[in-house]
């Protein structure tokens, strides 16, 4: 099993950024989501972010909302999410779960961390949990050796970045822009500034998410960040595909393009 630290170290040794691909578990179905995540890894995705579909995803734009709804209608439960994270981990790529807080609290904070670790999952990203509210979570993730990833945003003060980074392990998730998830034609240059501010506060790897959809954007972010996170662009391809086979081909093609992007040398 590869840890997040190892995955980032490998990428760094190769002189590139790590590529992180996001898909909601259970989208389009429980079985097919695991297949699509494996396809991502085969084409060069280093770390898979396994989304836990939630009824009220207030940090997500319409694309991820649609996928989460489809996953919930397919009956996806947090147990499925943990199982899928385990399947992904068997490919050798670390799996991190991305979940809003209420499903974890409802599942049982300690049980969630324990069962995810037992399945082989590496960490959890919690977009609506800040360090101020995370006492039980810190204890549970530490006890079960699960990495704990919080977000920082362009609006975060330096003091808060320090505080958030001190609570993180694995990596720090830098939201590139003020807004919700979804592909954008350009990634705000506030991302580079934010990454520099995070680096001043921690030695942990810094990954940039929100709005990345093309190899060129990935290449640009890879110049200054340790990881590039892509979600909505994959999901849009799956939503538009006529069949799972077609979706898989499209996911593979985008993963290849992005993997090439994070390996591109500086101009």
């Amino acid at each position: 099993m590869t840890t997040l630290a190892q995955a980032f170290a490998t990428a760094r040794d190769e002189g590139r950024a790590a590529l992180i691909g996001y898909l909601p578990a259970g989208f389009p179905t429980v079985r097919d989501s695991a297949r699509l995540m494996r396809a991502m890894v085969e084409e060069g995705v280093d770390i898979v972010e396994v989304g836990l579909p939630y009824s009220d995803p207030l940090m997500d734009g319409p694309v991820i909302q649609a996928a989460a709804n489809q996953a919930l209608e397919a009956g996806t439960t947090p147990r499925d999410v943990i199982a899928i994270a385990g399947e992904v981990a068997q490919t050798g790529a670390p799996a991190v779960v991305m979940s809003y807080w209420n499903p974890i609290e409802r599942y049982g904070v300690d049980a969630f961390a324990r069962e995810l670790a037992a399945a082989g999952g590496s960490g959890v990203i919690t977009p609506d949990l800040t360090p101020e509210e995370s006492g039980d979570w810190t204890a549970a993730t530490s006890a079960h050796d699960v990495d704990r990833i919080f977000l920082v945003a362009p609006s975060s003060t330096d003091e808060r970045i320090g505080r958030v980074a001190a609570e993180c392990s694995g990596f720090v998730y830098a939201a590139s822009t003020m807004g919700v998830t979804g592909a954008r034609t350009s990634v705000s240059n506030s991302a580079a500034t934010l990454v520099a501010r995070v680096r001043a506060a921690t030695d942990l790897p810094v990954a940039v998410g929100l709005g990345v959809s093309t190899g060129d954007q990935a290449a640009e972010i890879a110049q200054y960040a340790d990881g590039v996170i892509v979600g909505s662009a994959f999901i849009r391809l799956i939503l538009e595909a006529a069949s799972v086979d077609e979706a898989e081909q499209a996911v593979r093609a985008l993963a290849r393009e992005l993997a090439e992007g994070v390996r591109r040398r500086s101009p």
């Binding site: 977009p127 800040t130 101020e132 509210e133 919080f150 945003a153 808060r160 939201a175």
Partner: peptide, 20 residues
Amino acid sequence: VRGHYGPYGGRFVPEALTAA
């Protein structure tokens, strides 16, 4: 001081909203 009423309340929001 952080808006808790016993175990209730608090702030469970994306970090981007913390400053606001």
